[in-house]
C-alpha cells in the first residue's frame, strides 16, 4: 500500500517537501514506517539519524498519537511528530 507521511518541525529541514510517500506491505505497522523513514532520510543525508530524531519522534494520524504496533492501513493524515514545544 502507499503511505503519505506529513512531516513537521525539524524534519522540514531534512526533506524538501511537506510530505513523503512510502510503499509498504498492507499489514505494515508504525514500526515499519519508522524504519522506512530512517532509510529514506539516510539516503538523503548520510548523517541523518545521528541525532536520534526519528527514534524520539511519534507517529500519528489526524485523530491520535499511535502506538508502535498500530496498523497503518486505512488511516488518514499520517504524520511524523518530532518532540513538541508549543506555547
Amino acid at each position: 500500500m502507499q503511505i503519505r507521511l506529513a512531516v513537521f518541525g525539524a524534519f522540514r529541514g531534512q526533506v524538501a517537501q511537506s510530505d513523503l510517500t512510502f510503499i509498504l506491505p498492507d499489514d505494515a505497522r508504525v514500526r515499519h514506517l519508522r524504519a522506512a523513514l530512517k532509510v529514506h532520510l539516510r539516503a538523503l543525508h548520510p548523517a541523518a539519524g545521528d541525532d536520534g530524531l526519528v527514534e524520539r519522534s511519534a507517529f500519528a494520524d489526524a485523530n491520535e498519537v499511535l502506538d508502535e504496533e498500530a496498523a497503518l492501513a486505512g488511516r488518514q493524515g499520517l504524520a511524523v511528530l518530532p518532540p513538541v514545544c508549543g506555547g
Binding site: 524520539r56 519522534s57 498519537v65 499511535l66 518530532p82 518532540p83 513538541v84 514545544c85
Partner: peptide, 8 residues
C-alpha cells in the same frame, strides 16, 4: 528542542 510525544 522539545518534549517527545512517543508512545512506543
Amino acid at each position: 528542542q522539545g518534549h517527545a510525544l512517543c508512545r512506543h
